[in-house]
Amino acid sequence: MNARSLLLNAYVYAVLIFILLPIIIILPMSVSESNYLAFPPEGFTLRWFEDYFGDRRWMEATWFSIRIATLTAIATAVIGTMATYALVRGAGRMGTLFQTLLIGPIVVPHIALAVALYLFFQNTGLSGTTLGYVMAHSLIAMPFTVFTVAAALSSIDPALEDAAMSCGASRFTAFRLITLPMILPNVVSGGLFAFIISFDEPVIAFFLAGIRDKTLPRMMFDDIEQNLTPVIPAIAVLLTLLSIAVLIGAGMLKRMADRRGAGG
């Protein structure tokens, strides 16, 4: 190893530490005995985790978030797959427009989207409803699902479906039995990403929240305004662990898909 690659390695690690540091810091903060956010932490306690799991309000918010995120994941996976199929397999001249509309939410600031949705949902009675949340979250999660599914779909020879049809399968059966099993790992990991995006989405939740039903990130903001106890870093730790679990899950799915593609 020469000096240059040594320097490069050091640089890479420095960047990684810079990125990871805030995440690492919340861990000691979440077990600190003090009643406010403190670093370095004082003592060790799991009290804040107990507070979180024991508080009805936190739990309600968590279950509400899980419900929204699950429905968002399913909606995004189904609609995203259908949309991607249309995009990859011939949307024709409308394709570009369609694609721009689908992935638009990536470039539109969430705050702008949130304001627009707020006004729209106020007038249609969707504000604060599960359906409203799922629609809004699907909108922002859709681009990620589309990208994930498109990556798999564009690597599949369209002639495979032709072959299935020449074997007697209808167009839908050809998709269901041939294309879908091949892209399924990507569809599922697209859904997992959608779950995570929905689960810790704060901006839209801020605008759409009713008085009763609040998502977990929304509850956290409320708590930060009023109390700012180490429950917040405790939840942050749990959210981080969830994200890591989902990433590992998506990675395993990808490995599975690759192995299958290589014919193992």
């Binding site: 002639a159 072959a163 049809m165 020449s166 041939i178 091949m182 299958r260 593609g261």
Partner: peptide, 20 residues
């Protein structure tokens, strides 16, 4: 008639076996 109703056997240029 659509392809699936023709009862024709077809061999394509690039095998097109179902990899899964």
């Amino acid at each position: 008639l659509p392809p699936n109703k023709r009862n024709i056997g077809m061999v394509f240029q690039h095998y097109t076996l179902f990899p899964h």
